[in-house]
Design a protein around this nucleic acid. Sequence first.
DNA 1: TCGAGATTGTTTGGATACGAACAATATAGA
DNA 2: TCTATATTGTTCGTATCCAAACAATCTCGA
Lengths: 164, 164
Amino acid sequence: MTGSHTLAETEARVENRLSHMQLDFEAMAVMSNLFRAASAVRNHFERNVLAPSGLSWTAFVVLWVTWIWEPAETREIAGEAGISKATLTGVLSTLEKRGLAMRSRSADDGRLVLVTLTPEGEKLMADLFPKFNKQEVEVVAPIATGQRVALADMLRAITAKLDG
Amino acid sequence: MTGSHTLAETEARVENRLSHMQLDFEAMAVMSNLFRAASAVRNHFERNVLAPSGLSWTAFVVLWVTWIWEPAETREIAGEAGISKATLTGVLSTLEKRGLAMRSRSADDGRLVLVTLTPEGEKLMADLFPKFNKQEVEVVAPIATGQRVALADMLRAITAKLDG
DNA sequence: TCGAGATTGTTTGGATACGAACAATATAGA
DNA sequence: TCTATATTGTTCGTATCCAAACAATCTCGA
């Protein structure tokens, strides 16, 4: 998934190739491993949990956010899902075409579009999310029980700094 | 960036909405924050570091891997960058069109394509990467100095489990 | 009431993203 | 030498993905 090189191999090569450059290698390692982990986990979920349902990662996240906040405003969904509103327009059209989500105009504010799940969408999420969570447990398994909260906190701190 | 809701707000809502479902909320929080952090950091880098050079995130990662492993085989780059070989074909074409990277056939193995940076590509990376690393330092700043290695290690452990 | 400015979702154009099918090349065994 | 099998990068079709431009709608002050 991450290529033919070991992680240690890659980091050693980076250190060697850039050692003359006055860089913070510790910060580099944190960021590098953040993206590797996110990418590996995402690929894992796409192939093992989402693919059987024909859902892309983003489509699933959009369904999930809608599930939690229903009825959800599109600006809300885009923010929570970390995608642009332009992207959301396309994803929502796909989800509507598949009969999993529905758009409706807000009565209060004619500019807003509200999104809800169809019964079929509800059923899919009720079936899919427990499977998803089972895999989350698997993925987190290598982290010592006592450290998972600390890991979540550190990641939250990074997000908070940038979103603040 | 992450939407109009606070992280705490969202997690509370999730807990409330799904509390009847027998889920591992700790694992969920770790995964959720992993993707939030990765997404927030990526957006931050795209807008503040990469956009001025007209580079996409993936284009930058491909340049970076090439920079480190030059001459790099495409399968190697795709693996390290976490993208499919089909995607890499397109990105490499873009980079060639912009005069930042070059393809060449391997003499040893006619199937392989080797990638190197052009002088212009070299110059761009030599200029860009220190700026990139400066932002990496900023992003990691909220993490206590003594915990950064632990954070990198935990992320590495997650990746290792999935790539193993 | 009315009009300038802000906000929202969509469209547009171009780049990224993947799986599957493909042609070219290499490798192994008979 | 020959041939079945494997590997590699590209092509194809379709779905994201984003910034910028856009039309519709709201807000707020004069």
